[in-house]
């Protein structure tokens, strides 16, 4: 076991996969000589050279489309789109092109490519630099969406994404960029589609991912008297139904927490599935906690009010697990 910072986990995942497989290449804005806007690709240009590690123009659609063409003809590109918001610039190439290549070609072509992007929610970066847009991409058949909230998970999921034969959107949390965590270098793949049960509990399941996940961990500190089963979904699409359903079958309660706007979010999909599968076994309504229905505001006090905070999560848990219901 080694302690790595979150960004170092991203960096070592790319470095080790590029060492393992010469077909893995990396390009994007500021990724080569500058080593990434936030340093995720530091040292990779020196290690692998200018053929495999390239700076690009600010052309998100063509960055993704170029990755797709290279993926269809033998490579495993990783491209970095600097902020999650900027992925919207490349929407056609992701939604209409990369996600559909396997299906449209009846399996004749595959697109083994990773779009890495960074979500800056919680860093006071304002409406076009801090959105949580995972629902847009989880909705598209043919795409997979992963989001590791710890160094071990961001590293293990990125490795799995690079080895996947289809397009994967790999989201990273800027707010966790310098957080440290233990990484087991021998067990370094996190299979896509596997959630992590962080704590075992009986009263309620609290499910989250991405930037919301560390906040649920902090909320637990205020909830010493409640037995919480905490799950980090880790893969948003395809999501780990078995783990979530098994947990809620045990606890009878589910709180879903995400930093994305609540309305039409991923939480709705999970709530609908759990509601149908476990109808009659729920001890309380399924509750969702997320951002307010507004663009992400810049001012610190506004952003704090906008995103769910640990105290909000703790309060929502207490509302659901009222003593009168807890029989």
């Amino acid at each position: 076991m080694t302690a790595l910072k979150y960004w170092q986990a991203v960096n070592t995942a790319m470095r080790e996969e590029m060492e393992r497989d010469p077909k893995v290449i990396l390009f994007g804005e500021d990724v080569a000589a500058p080593g990434g806007s936030f340093g995720a690709s530091k040292g990779l240009l020196d290690a692998f050279g200018p053929e495999r590690v390239r700076d690009t123009p600010i052309s998100e659609a063509t960055i993704v489309g170029t990755a797709l063409g290279a993926a269809m003809t033998g490579y495993r590109p990783i491209v970095e789109i600097m902020f999650f918001d900027f992925v919207a610039v490349a929407m056609d190439q992701i939604v209409n092109q990369a996600a559909k290549v396997s299906y449209m070609s009846a399996g004749g072509y595959a697109a083994p490519m990773v779009i890495r992007t960074i979500c800056a929610a919680g860093r006071r970066t304002g409406p076009q630099h801090s959105q949580n847009l995972e629902a847009l991409f989880a909705h598209i058949p043919g795409l997979k969406v992963v989001w590791g909230s710890t160094p071990a998970d961001v590293r293990g999921l990125l490795k799995a994404a690079i080895r996947d034969d289809g397009p994967v959107l790999a989201i990273e949390s800027l707010v966790e960029w310098s957080s440290r965590g233990e990484v087991d270098e021998a067990e370094d793949i996190v299979p896509i589609g596997s959630a992590a049960v962080r704590t075992q509990g009986d009263d309620i399941t609290v499910l989250s991912w991405g930037g919301a996940a560390p906040k649920t961990v902090r909320a637990l500190e205020e909830l010493g008297d409640v037995s919480v089963e905490l799950i980090d979904l880790r893969t948003i699409s395809p999501w780990d139904r078995d783990t979530v359903l098994a947990s809620v079958e045990k606890t009878g309660r589910l709180l879903i927490v995400h930093d994305a706007v609540v309305d039409f979010g991923v939480g709705a999909e999970i709530a609908a599935t759990v509601g149908r599968e476990l109808f009659g076994r729920l001890r309380s309504p399924i509750e969702r906690l997320g951002a307010l229905r507004a663009p992400a505001p810049f001012a610190p006090h506004l952003e704090d009010a906008y995103l769910p905070q640990p105290s909000d999560i703790a309060a929502a848990v207490r509302d659901l697990v009222r003593p009168s219901d807890n029989t």
């Binding site: 290449i25 053929e51 495999r52 659609a61 063509t62 993704v64 489309g65 170029t66 990755a67 797709l68 063409g69 290279a70 993926a71 269809m72 003809t73 033998g74 490579y75 590109p77 056609d92 190439q93 209409n96 092109q97 290549v101 449209m104 070609s105 004749g108 072509y109």
Partner: peptide
């Protein structure tokens, strides 16, 4: 499309196939 003869694909999006061809050219160069 037809992978057996290098047809990456027709495209329903005007211009959508141009970056894909850039990627194939990048692979050829590499």
């Amino acid at each position: 499309s037809d992978s057996s003869v290098g047809i990456l694909g027709a495209n329903g999006i005007v211009g959508g196939g141009i970056p894909m061809a850039v990627g194939s050219a990048l692979a050829a160069q590499l």
